[in-house]
Amino acid sequence: MPAYHSTFLGEESQDTRTIGNLSLLPLNTKYRGPAFESNSDYDIIEETLDLFRANSFFKNFEIKGNADRLLIYGILFTSDCLSKISKTMSHKESTRVLNNLSLDNFALPGDISFPLNSLYLPPKTRSDADLLRSYLTQFRQELAERLLNRIYKDDSNIPSKYWLSFTKRKFMNKSL
Results as ranks from 00 to 15, higher is better:
Y73E: 08
T167V: 15
T78G: 06
D111C: 03
E62N: 11
D154Q: 11
L136H: 04
P34A: 02
V97F: 03
R32T: 15
E47F: 03
T167W: 09
G20F: 07
I45K: 04
K161A: 15
L27N: 05
I158A: 10
Y42E: 07
E145S: 14
G33D: 03
G74D: 03
D43G: 03
L132C: 04
T29E: 06
G10Q: 00
D111V: 06
L121R: 11
R140D: 06
L25K: 06
L121V: 13
E37G: 14
L176W: 13
S40W: 10
L9F: 05
E37T: 15
L51F: 09
K174C: 14
A144E: 08
L131Y: 12
I85E: 06
L71W: 00
D50Y: 02
Y73A: 10
F61T: 01
R69W: 07
L24Y: 01
K124N: 14
P122D: 01
K59D: 15
Y4I: 14
S38C: 15
K168R: 10
S86K: 07
I63M: 04
L49S: 01
R96V: 13
E62M: 08
S40L: 14
Q14Y: 13
F171A: 06
F57V: 14
F171P: 06
Y152C: 05
S86G: 09
P159M: 01
S94H: 06
P26A: 02
I63C: 05
T167A: 13
N117I: 04
S86F: 08
G33W: 03
S118Y: 07
N66T: 11
M89H: 08
I63D: 02
S134I: 10
L131I: 15
L25T: 05
N21T: 05
S56N: 09
D104K: 12
G110P: 07
H91Y: 10
L9G: 08
G10M: 00
G65C: 02
K64Y: 12
Y135A: 05
A54R: 09
I112H: 11
K87A: 10
S86W: 05
K64A: 11
F61I: 04
N99R: 12
G110Y: 01
G110T: 03
L148K: 05
L136R: 06
I112V: 11
R53T: 14
L121E: 11
N60L: 12
L22P: 10
E37I: 15
G110E: 04
K124I: 11
S86Y: 07
D155G: 01
E142L: 10
D155M: 00
N117V: 01
L132N: 06
S83Y: 08
D111I: 00
L143S: 01
K124S: 13
G10Y: 00
D68L: 07
M172G: 06
T167N: 11
P2D: 13
A144C: 15
I19C: 04
K87Q: 07
Y162P: 00
L71Y: 01
L98V: 00
V97W: 02
S134W: 07
A107Y: 07
V97H: 02
